[in-house]
């Protein structure tokens, strides 16, 4: 479970770095579009989903890890 918690933290860090690269915010570029949305918007929405996924994984793993340590109230 500790590995899963580390995975969630590492995932959040990597995602947070990628967001500020041209992979997510290419300058003055709005193609390719997806479902009519410009590139930065739909990739930004995917990034948000990424955070939500890591939040859910993190909550699950963190609660188990801390429970094992007897730390949760």
């Amino acid at each position: 479970m500790k590995k899963l918690w580390s995975f969630a933290r590492l995932g959040v860090i990597i995602l947070s770095i990628l967001i500020f690269t041209p992979l997510v915010i290419p300058k003055n570029e709005f193609r390719p579009e997806f479902m009519g949305m410009p590139y930065t918007l739909w990739v930004g929405i995917l990034a948000y989903f990424g955070y939500v996924a890591f939040i859910m994984i993190g909550i699950y793993a963190h609660s188990k890890v801390k429970k094992e340590e007897g730390g949760n109230d």
Partner: peptide, 16 residues
């Protein structure tokens, strides 16, 4: 649309 990176994405990590 850069506002999406400015606010919602930043809020994503804040919720973490």
């Amino acid at each position: 649309v850069g506002a999406w990176i400015f606010l919602p994405v930043s809020d994503g990590i804040m919720f973490f």
